[in-house]
Design a protein around this nucleic acid. Structure first.
Lengths: 230, 230
DNA sequence: GACATGTCTGGAACGGCGTTCCAAACTGGG
DNA sequence: CCCAGTTTGGAACGCCGTTCCAGACATGTC
């Protein structure tokens, strides 16, 4: 029997779940996944840890709420074709993760929670609109979701690595970082690593967003091949 | 100037990087990602934290070494066609992550490190063997890698969730857990969630391994469509 | 044999984390 | 005005990764 329901705001500086979640998102955006601490949160909200725990069960729930809050913003779609809508949804998620890299870690473990489930639903609707036969719909939508989350997460991880290296060597741009990895691949023995050696150049010049969309199109092409008739 | 090279084993119970990594893998397998602690490791090895730090820089490096040690086992492939080899590689990774769920978290952040890079190379070789034109090779291999890691990771996350729930309610099988989620999807408003409502049955009956392979085949189909001529 | 040198060990200590606990402050209803 | 329920804030607990350092051990030199 914890709480009965809402109350009128009794204080002007009243703590609320929304205010806590909003501040949590601020901290996460400012300092990454490690930046969210009940101590930092307490300081920012000028209160104690216990007060926060009265509104929020634990850190995991808080992270989930922050994820939902951010994901709720990046969702609306209306395009000409189902393919275009899938691309738009994918890009929306990609950009959201790019803007809030800590989302990656959240979505990685269990992409079927709350807001993420809503996105999965939207993807599935487009898969159905593409005429995929029933039994393959689940697989197709899952493949799309996993690729999108996985690719965007890796992009976020790269960005995080770049940011970390920049702290040690502030002039290292993302380009320079990619160039470094690329030269490393070029330096590999072509006998042992023919593929990496070959495509090292592509790594250096690739645009993350383009590559991401190309991957989505690849899966869309595979989905198209599932349709009964062309 | 840390160490000069090898020495003869001066003591019979000598600590070594290999022994540390092996014990770390044991702990990770036994108690998950949170089970690896320098304190637990010290106890298991009957030594102190400092001794471990002399052989290993920090926890992150230790996790990387554990990942490489486990991944080094699950790699060899020799099949009739490149497609079959891709499937075999994929299944190898899937099974490895299924057996060592903590791998998921490691591979999620930066799938281009050490042993993971070797797997990426192998995938790329098969993509080349499939006749994919040069510029699309990087994208195709990346899509495969991301889907494999993402799908296997989600599978591991589901398994972990199931294990956690089993602790509270020991009779809950994986089937029962899936059934629960499935019924939840069925209970959603078909107006708001037509897709989830539709495929709830598939979720209940699906086999993870089959679904995983179906996803790989989906991407392979998309890759096949990239070839200049059929 | 003694000793100086570099390698390796183990445990104490530090600061920070998530979480729990609880006395006090606040609020609205009788 | 006081009582019961709600909400607060900060102290305390046990754990974590990491650092520090006194000393044990092994070896080469005289």
């Amino acid at each position: 029997m914890a709480s009965k329901a809402r109350h009128t705001d009794r204080r002007t500086d009243a703590l609320s779940r929304e205010r806590i979640v909003a501040t949590a998102v601020e901290l996460l955006d400012a300092a990454g996944a490690d930046g969210l601490t009940f101590r930092a949160l307490s300081a920012e909200l000028r209160t104690g840890a216990g007060a926060i725990y009265w509104h929020v069960a634990n850190k995991s729930e808080l992270l989930g709420a922050a994820t939902d809050a951010v994901l709720a913003g990046a969702t609306t779609v209306a395009e000409a074709t189902p393919e275009a809508e899938v691309r738009a949804l994918a890009l929306g998620l990609f950009d959201a993760i790019d803007e809030h890299p800590w989302l990656a870690g959240q979505l990685a473990q269990g992409p079927w929670k709350s807001e993420a489930l809503r996105i999965f639903e939207r993807l599935g609707q487009r898969v159905q609109a593409l005429g995929v036969p029933g039994p393959a719909q689940f697989t197709s939508a899952t493949a799309l979701m996993l690729f999108i989350v996985g690719a965007a997460s890796q992009n976020a991880a790269n960005a995080a690595n770049a940011a970390e290296l920049r702290r040690a060597q502030p002039d290292a741009s993302r380009t320079a970082l990619l160039a470094g990895e690329s030269t490393m691949w070029e330096g590999l023995d072509p006998g042992d690593y023919p593929f990496l050696h070959d495509i090292a150049g592509q790594l250096r010049e690739h645009d993350d967003r383009e590559q991401f969309l190309a991957g989505v199109d690849l899966i869309l092409a595979g989905i198209a091949a599932l349709r009964p008739q062309a």
